[in-house]
């Protein structure tokens, strides 16, 4: 089944980024297709390359980068929300990109399921 995953909160401060990741991993393992992962609101902080989390904890940024690259998932941060928060093309982890809200609309319309985490 075709899923879109929408993440509304930033990393660490909220568990949403962790639950979204665990859900996405489980969905892929079951053979479902993730059409797009879209980050909105503070969620755009999930894919910055400027963070250095402590080594004894999970690296949320790297996890998103790896899951995007390993599975060819289009992983997008909203440009309007990013600009507001100081994120741009230069500050994004590998395998992710920045684009407009139209990419959310397009994914929602083209997927059978939208699952939101916030």
């Amino acid at each position: 089944m075709k899923f879109t995953v929408l993440v509304h909160e930033g990393p660490y401060n909220h568990q949403a980024a962790d639950t979204a990741y665990n859900f996405t991993k489980a969905a892929i393992a079951k053979g479902h297709e993730i059409v797009r992962i879209f980050f909105y609101h503070d969620g755009v902080y999930n894919i910055t390359n400027q963070a250095e989390p402590p080594q004894d904890d999970r690296d949320i940024y790297k996890r998103w980068s790896d899951i995007a690259k390993d599975n060819g998932i289009d992983t997008v941060a909203c440009i309007a929300a990013s600009k507001r928060r100081g994120i741009n093309d230069k500050y994004m982890v590998e395998g992710t990109r920045i684009s407009g809200l139209g990419q959310l609309a397009d994914a929602v319309i083209g997927s059978e399921r939208l699952v939101t985490f916030g």
Partner: peptide, 19 residues
Amino acid sequence: IGYDGFVDLAVESKSHAWV
């Protein structure tokens, strides 16, 4: 249930997040 079960529920029907 676990994350697997969560995925199965999300396949069975549409979902809405009360965030």
